[in-house]
């Protein structure tokens, strides 16, 4: 499987007159986890939602700049947003499985994208659930409602759902912040596992989590990237005063 990364050039996001993200340029390497940290309202979630054009849904939101995947700038108006989103998975803060069975949650995407064969779908479902470390817990009740799962299981199901359409990149918006510590640990294990195949970008409030799971970390403040470096460097030897203040808990 070929892995792809993503390059962001000079990206700005504005809601009406208010600028939420200012001239951000970042490089996300394949098979790596990049963490976006920063105090609330620093624009990291907004930035993340621009990467799969989810901000298109919000009226009055304008995104300028370039986002390159492979050889295509996906932020250009000509981009076919629907095809694009298939290449970029997304996981939300609160688990949001569809109001369908566990099986349907996973099969829904691939079926839409052309896999009609029942056997192939079964395989995709099993493979995705295995990758999300959920197969053993759910294989006997695939046709039960996904809403009957626990919060942590639901979140892993959402991850399984997004990898079922075979994306290059997975965006995660505080994927563990609504979960208990045990479920959080499982999600973090899963992220380390998934890193072998995907480029992962994760927004997190939890600095320990960023330190544990990521290879590189970007520190956001007031819509700008203050510092972007290897995770150990950011946490042990930050170059900027603001970064140091934030990771030592002086604000945020």
């Amino acid at each position: 499987m070929q892995a792809f990364g993503m390059t962001v050039n000079d990206l700005s996001v504005a809601y009406g007159d208010r600028t939420a993200v200012k001239n951000v340029s970042l490089d996300f390497a394949p098979k790596q986890v990049t963490a976006l940290i920063g105090p609330s309202g620093c624009g990291k979630s907004t930035f993340l939602r621009s990467l799969n054009r989810m901000n298109d849904l919000i009226a009055g939101c304008t995104v300028t700049g370039e986002i390159w995947i492979r050889d295509q700038n996906i932020n250009s108006p000509e981009t076919d947003v629907v095809s694009l989103r298939q290449r970029i998975g997304m996981v939300w803060q609160r688990p949001n499985p569809f109001h369908k069975s566990i099986y349907e949650n996973i099969a829904f995407g691939p079926r839409y994208h052309g896999t009609k064969n029942k056997k192939q779908l079964d395989e995709i479902v099993e493979e995705s659930l295995r990758k999300a470390a959920l197969w053993d817990e759910t294989k006997d009740r695939l046709h039960n409602s996904a809403l009957a799962l626990s919060g942590g299981q639901q979140q892993r199901l959402c991850i399984a759902r997004s990898i079922a359409v075979k994306p290059d990149i997975i965006l995660m918006d505080e994927p563990a912040s609504a979960l208990d510590p045990v479920s959080t640990a499982k999600i973090e294990e899963l992220i380390a596992e998934l890193k072998q195949d995907y480029c992962i970008v994760i927004v997190t409030h939890n600095m320990h989590q960023a330190a544990r799971v990521s290879d590189k970390t970007a520190f956001f403040l007031s819509g700008e990237v203050v510092e972007y470096d290897l995770t150990p460097t950011i946490f042990t030897n930050p170059q900027r005063r603001e970064t140091n203040d934030y990771i030592t808990g002086r604000f945020g």
């Binding site: 070929q2 050889d71 996906i74 629907v82 095809s83």
Partner: peptide, 14 residues
């Protein structure tokens, strides 16, 4: 080898 971003030639979703 970079394959094009849009997998299918025909785009039923459009």
């Amino acid at each position: 080898m970079a394959q094009p971003l849009d997998r299918q030639k025909a785009k039923p979703h459009l």
